[in-house]
Simulated assay, not measured.
Amino acid sequence: MARKRKFGRPIDGVILINKATGMTSNDVVQKVKRLFFASKAGHTGALDPLATGVLPICLGEATKFSQYLLDADKVYESTFCFGVATDTCDSDGQVIEQVDASALTQAQVEAALVQFRGNIEQVPPMYSALKKDGQPLYKLARAGIEVEREARKVTIHAFDILDFSAGAIAQAKVRIECTKGTYVRSLCDDLGRLLGFGAHVSSLKRVATGDFLLENAYSLAELTEERGEEKAEVLDHHLLATDAPVWRLPKITLDDDSGYYFGRGQAVMDKEVYHIGEEGDTVRVFRAAGDFLGLGEITDDGRVTPRRLVVR
């Protein structure tokens, strides 16, 4: 049987997308693949359809290092509405409770936020992509089934009010700096419960993923307009390097011979190792010509052994 022909070109790198509301993260991935005519692409941490903001998309060999962005800290700006609770904890859901929140003050919200800073545990919402016995929780929730979810440890580095509006439906615009796996909708729901009012998220924007900022991201509309009727290569200048997800890791440059053997999966000895790190450290490995070869680990005898290789 003939091998199925692979769609697209082997283009490598990272593109920062400013995701629009109403789209799933997978929608964005598929559109980026078509715009760049890429054979392989993947996102680095899903955003809810309601959410907007920075969504790094890895193309080609860069997908091998996407986990580093999945694990990176995130920064969000969100609007919490107090007085109305929904089944999804956001404005896309059905209203399940409504009370007058006119008595709520900014000072009360400020005081309550103290309990949500630092290391906390939160229970993921039913409307999430987490799985229970192989089934996404959101599918169970749509079927009216609620299951017990185990609390997860997350760290909230900062949780601050940017603006507050009192009223029957009080609103607080907040900024949250947090570790991976934090559910802003759960923070909102838990905060509302603590204050005695139902609450939901009416807007959510991710302004940073690790070192990647929203201000440097492109909308799909901008990229579509720029490409027009041209070939996909016209967009390549927007791509960050293949090693962008791991750029903070120490860099080691091998001579041509060592680079050759490293690229074929063999551990190599190099005098530069002793100046770069210690045993067990992960490093970015380059060939003298400038090619990124992948990630290596420093061993106890001063060698660099391959851990994740770029294939060319």
Rank of each mutant, 00 (worst) to 15 (best):
residue 3 R to H: 15
residue 9 R to G: 00
residue 10 P to E: 14
residue 12 D to P: 10
residue 12 D to K: 07
residue 13 G to M: 02
residue 13 G to C: 02
residue 14 V to L: 14
residue 15 I to H: 10
residue 17 I to H: 01
residue 21 T to C: 13
residue 21 T to R: 14
residue 23 M to A: 11
residue 27 D to Y: 04
residue 27 D to V: 09
residue 31 K to H: 12
residue 32 V to R: 07
residue 32 V to E: 06
residue 35 L to A: 11
residue 36 F to W: 08
residue 39 S to E: 15
residue 40 K to P: 06
residue 46 A to R: 06
residue 47 L to D: 06
residue 47 L to E: 08
residue 48 D to A: 02
residue 48 D to V: 09
residue 54 V to P: 08
residue 55 L to T: 05
residue 55 L to V: 04
residue 58 C to I: 08
residue 59 L to W: 09
residue 61 E to K: 15
residue 64 K to G: 14
residue 68 Y to M: 02
residue 69 L to H: 04
residue 70 L to T: 13
residue 77 E to G: 01
residue 80 F to G: 07
residue 82 F to K: 12
residue 84 V to L: 06
residue 87 D to F: 01
residue 87 D to V: 10
residue 90 D to G: 02
residue 97 E to Y: 02
residue 101 A to C: 09
residue 102 S to R: 14
residue 107 A to E: 14
residue 108 Q to T: 04
residue 109 V to K: 02
residue 109 V to Y: 03
residue 109 V to D: 02
residue 110 E to R: 05
residue 111 A to G: 01
residue 113 L to R: 06
residue 116 F to R: 02
residue 117 R to A: 05
residue 117 R to D: 00
residue 119 N to P: 10
residue 120 I to G: 02
residue 121 E to M: 05
residue 121 E to C: 14
residue 122 Q to K: 01
residue 127 Y to S: 01
residue 128 S to D: 01
residue 129 A to W: 09
residue 130 L to S: 06
residue 131 K to M: 10
residue 131 K to R: 12
residue 134 G to T: 03
residue 136 P to A: 05
residue 137 L to A: 05
residue 141 A to R: 06
residue 142 R to E: 03
residue 142 R to V: 01
residue 148 E to G: 01
residue 148 E to R: 07
residue 149 R to Y: 03
residue 149 R to K: 11
residue 157 H to F: 10
residue 160 D to C: 04
residue 161 I to M: 12
residue 162 L to H: 06
residue 177 E to L: 00
residue 178 C to P: 10
residue 178 C to Y: 11
residue 178 C to V: 04
residue 183 Y to A: 12
residue 183 Y to F: 15
residue 184 V to I: 15
residue 187 L to Y: 09
residue 188 C to V: 13
residue 189 D to G: 00
residue 189 D to A: 15
residue 194 L to Y: 05
residue 194 L to M: 15
residue 199 A to T: 03
residue 199 A to H: 08
residue 200 H to K: 06
residue 201 V to C: 12
residue 202 S to V: 12
residue 205 K to N: 11
residue 205 K to A: 05
residue 208 A to H: 00
residue 208 A to R: 12
residue 211 D to C: 00
residue 212 F to Y: 13
residue 217 A to T: 08
residue 218 Y to K: 07
residue 221 A to G: 04
residue 232 A to K: 11
residue 233 E to R: 14
residue 236 D to C: 13
residue 237 H to N: 08
residue 238 H to S: 05
residue 239 L to R: 07
residue 241 A to I: 00
residue 242 T to D: 09
residue 243 D to Y: 15
residue 244 A to N: 05
residue 244 A to G: 09
residue 245 P to G: 13
residue 246 V to D: 10
residue 248 R to V: 05
residue 248 R to Y: 12
residue 250 P to W: 01
residue 251 K to E: 12
residue 251 K to W: 03
residue 260 Y to H: 13
residue 261 Y to K: 00
residue 265 G to Y: 13
residue 265 G to L: 11
residue 266 Q to G: 11
residue 267 A to G: 14
residue 269 M to P: 00
residue 271 K to T: 11
residue 274 Y to Q: 13
residue 278 E to C: 04
residue 279 E to V: 10
residue 280 G to Y: 00
residue 281 D to P: 01
residue 282 T to R: 11
residue 284 R to Y: 04
residue 285 V to Q: 09
residue 285 V to E: 03
residue 287 R to Q: 09
residue 291 D to G: 00
residue 294 G to Q: 12
residue 296 G to S: 12
residue 299 T to Q: 14
residue 303 R to I: 04
residue 304 V to H: 07
residue 304 V to Y: 06
residue 306 P to T: 07
residue 306 P to C: 11
residue 307 R to S: 14
residue 308 R to E: 15
residue 308 R to T: 15
